[in-house]
Design a protein around this nucleic acid. Structure first.
Lengths: 224, 224
DNA sequence: ATAGTGTCCATACACGATGTATGGTGGCGC
DNA sequence: GCGCCACCATACATCGTGTATGGACACTAT
């Protein structure tokens, strides 16, 4: 092979501060690619060219493309939980607020999180089944949401009482997973959930019906 | 070009004296393998040896292993819908029956369907994301369930009225998908849904809360 | 300067899986 | 015998993954 190492690589395409770690480049290139392509239709080679990184470098920073996805998911979810914290904690403190409105706000936050990170979140949901690491990660994240939901329910005497002897945690988990599924379907453009209004209404209705026994009241009138 | 013998060979034209049809062997071998291994951890080579079929024969009957799974899913689901028909239709005729009990029975039927076909159903849920054909198939199947649920709701004045101006179909779809997710988690052994009693209670409670506004009443007392 | 070290790159390879192609075997009806 | 059909064995082209191996460059200590 005439592998003359003379005319070496054109170095970085300039403009990029060399300090823009390769690791970050890999991460954001993947996130970008995920915006328009399915994770499994994505080869490391694709990521390599998009991130302008060599194969060797890629495998230096990540053991596999699944690991990259894992990190993207962790980022997205923790960022989302940051945003949702006021919902969970605020409720417990400020018990005076209308719980239904608060629930709806939380549901909408979830929709926003999914809208902003659709590619990444769809990717893990779709590939959770074919990779043990991703599955564990996703279960863990859903567990965190379940914890929050359970705490929310636990601190709400009205809901607590209504659930009677049913496991609060089980109910919280079911609500969490229902959300996961519906948000995913919405992100995937599956009707009728592709309509965010419908999605939020239905999900909010589920929460309020299950926790308070009343259907969603004024679906879209009040200033929201 | 041996691939153009005029028409489809005698696929399975009734009485087949041949050696137990290769096609069937492939199907049931795959179903069996799916009982203990994930679909994506299954190569066609594995199916070949399990079914004692040659590679050429496999690709004569099926274009891919996904197609095999697709057929298994179709079989399982239609069989399941057969079983669930009395639930959907019976309700509409015999309006006198306790709707909550009927709902619970339907939920339990679903659990049974999933228990009996766990491997196959888990496989499609897990790989729905990485194959367009499987995804379309699964959406189609869920649509059928949604149709049934929507009809069930539509024919129930009490539920209809409670839902107000919310889309019946959207509610039906959300309940269907919630079931899909919870049954899947149960099949995957994820707590707390791995406990069938909890699973059925929570799901039934969701249905009755959303449709009737009342929590599940006597969780496990009556003769069931 | 010179050597050392750490970051990065190019190339190539071993492996495993998929799907296709080619040629062969044995039973069966004519 | 002939042709045909259901089936098998094998080989192969292709593609994706993950692992080496070895070299280029920059920055630093001596």
């Amino acid at each position: 092979m005439p592998s003359k190492p003379g005319a070496q690589h054109a170095r970085r395409s300039a403009a990029e501060p060399a300090s823009t770690g390769l690791r970050e480049r890999i991460l954001s290139a993947t996130r970008e690619l995920l915006r328009e392509r399915r994770f499994d239709a994505l080869s490391v080679a694709d990521i390599l060219t998009a991130a302008e990184v060599s194969r060797a470098s890629f495998y230096f920073y990540f053991p596999s493309k699944q690991a990259v996805l894992g990190e993207l998911v962790r980022d997205a979810v923790t960022q989302g939980q940051q945003a949702a914290r006021p919902w969970v904690e605020g409720l417990q403190i400020d018990g005076s607020q209308d719980p239904v409105a608060a629930l709806r706000a939380g549901v909408r936050d979830g929709a926003r999180l999914w809208r902003d990170n659709a590619g990444v979140l769809m990717a893990i949901v779709e590939n959770q089944g074919s990779d043990d690491g991703l599955r564990a990660l996703w279960l863990e994240q859903m567990d965190l949401f379940t914890d929050a939901a359970a705490a929310r329910i636990e601190s709400d005497p009205q809901a607590r009482e209504r659930l009677g002897d049913m496991s609060v945690r089980a109910v919280a988990a079911s609500l969490t997973w229902m959300g996961e599924r519906l948000y995913y379907l919405a992100a995937a453009g599956v009707p009728p959930f592709d309509d965010e209004e419908v999605l939020v209404d239905v999900l909010t209705n589920a929460w309020t019906s299950i926790l308070y026994g009343r259907p969603v009241e004024c679906p879209k009138d009040p200033a929201d």
